[in-house]
C-alpha cells in the first residue's frame, strides 16, 4: 500500500534572531548590536493527517518557534516548510494569513479573546472573515461551545468567563474552520484536570473525525501522553522522536505504571 504524503514536511529548517537586517523597519532604522540567537537549528520533521504530535522540552528549547513556523506565523531563516504541497516560504505575508485562515487552527497560552464580543461571536469571527452566512456562523459556533461544555455561556463576554472557560472559547475558535492542522501551545495550561481532559479528548476527536494533524507543545507530561509521537527538543534541535501508544486522556496517562 502506498503511504500518503505528509501534511507538513519540514526539511532542514533553522531560525536565527537578532540579525541586523531584522531590526530595520520603516520606523525603526537604528542598528542593533544584538547577537544572533539560533532558536531552531536544522530541524527535519514530517507530520501526517490524523496524527497528534507532542512537542516537549525546557523553556527556550525552540518549541514555540517550531510551532510558529509550522503554523506559517514565522518563516525559517533557512530550510523549507511544505504544507500539503505548498512551500510556505513562497507565500507572501498576506498569503500566509489566508493559509492560516483556510488550513490552520491555533490555540495560544494567552488566548486574547475580544472582550467586547460574546463567546459565540469570538468563535464565529474566522467565519465572518470567510463570508459565511450568519445562521451557519451561529450554528457552528454554538455547536463547538456546547462541545466544550460552554453551552450555557455562549452569550457571555470573556471578562465574564474564568480563565479555563476563556481557553476553551479560544480552542473552539481554532476549530471553527475545520482546520487541517491544529497548533496548540500549552493548551491546558490554564485548565483544571477535568477540563483539560475534555479539551484533549476534543483534540483526539478532531484528529480522528477531520483527519487533521494536531501539534501540542507543553511542559505537562500527562498532556503530551495523548500524542502519537513525541518530539523532544533542546537548544533548538530535535533530540529524540518517540512513537508512543497514545493515552486517550491525561488521566489514563497518569494511571500508566510506566
Amino acid at each position: 500500500m502506498m503511504q500518503s504524503p505528509p501534511l507538513v514536511a519540514c526539511s532542514g529548517i533553522s531560525r536565527h534572531y537578532g540579525r541586523r537586517s531584522e531590526q530595520r523597519g520603516f520606523f525603526n532604522r537604528r542598528k542593533s548590536d544584538t547577537p544572533t540567537v539560533t532558536a531552531l537549528s536544522n530541524v527535519d520533521l514530517e507530520i501526517s493527517r490524523g496524527e497528534i504530535v507532542g512537542c516537549a522540552g525546557p523553556s527556550g528549547s525552540g518549541k514555540s518557534t517550531l510551532l510558529h513556523i509550522l503554523a506559517g506565523l514565522d518563516t525559517p531563516s533557512s530550510g523549507a516548510v511544505v504544507f500539503d504541497g505548498t512551500n510556505l516560504g513562497d507565500l507572501s505575508r498576506r498569503g500566509r494569513t489566508k493559509h492560516r485562515l483556510d488550513h490552520v487552527g491555533i490555540v495560544f497560552q494567552h488566548f486574547h479573546l475580544l472582550d467586547s464580543l460574546s463567546a459565540r461571536a469570538n468563535v464565529a469571527l474566522p467565519l465572518v472573515e470567510r463570508g459565511r452566512p450568519k445562521r451557519e456562523r451561529r450554528r457552528r459556533a454554538t455547536e463547538l461551545l456546547e462541545a466544550m461544555g460552554l453551552g450555557d455561556r455562549i452569550t457571555h463576554r470573556p471578562p465574564e468567563l474564568s480563565g479555563g472557560e476563556q481557553q476553551r472559547v479560544a480552542i473552539a475558535r481554532a476549530l471553527v474552520t475545520n482546520p487541517d492542522l491544529v497548533i496548540a501551545d500549552e493548551p491546558t495550561g490554564e485548565l483544571d484536570t477535568e477540563t483539560g481532559d475534555r479539551v484533549l479528548t476534543r483534540f483526539r476527536a478532531v484528529a480522528a473525525e477531520l483527519n487533521a494533524a494536531v501539534v501540542i507543545a507543553s511542559h505537562d507530561e500527562p498532556t503530551l501522553a495523548i500524542a502519537d509521537r513525541l518530539v523532544r527538543m533542546r537548544d533548538g534541535e530535535i533530540t529524540q522522536i518517540e512513537t508512543q501508544s497514545p493515552a486517550q486522556t491525561p488521566q489514563e496517562a497518569s494511571m500508566d505504571p510506566k
Binding site: R100, L101, I106, F111, L113, P126, R173, T177
Partner: peptide
C-alpha cells in the same frame, strides 16, 4: 496589541 496579533494569527487579514 496582543489581541490584534492574535487576530492576525488566526487568519484575520490586515485589511479586515
Amino acid at each position: 496589541r496582543g489581541r490584534l496579533a492574535t487576530l492576525a494569527a488566526i487568519g484575520i487579514s490586515a485589511r479586515t
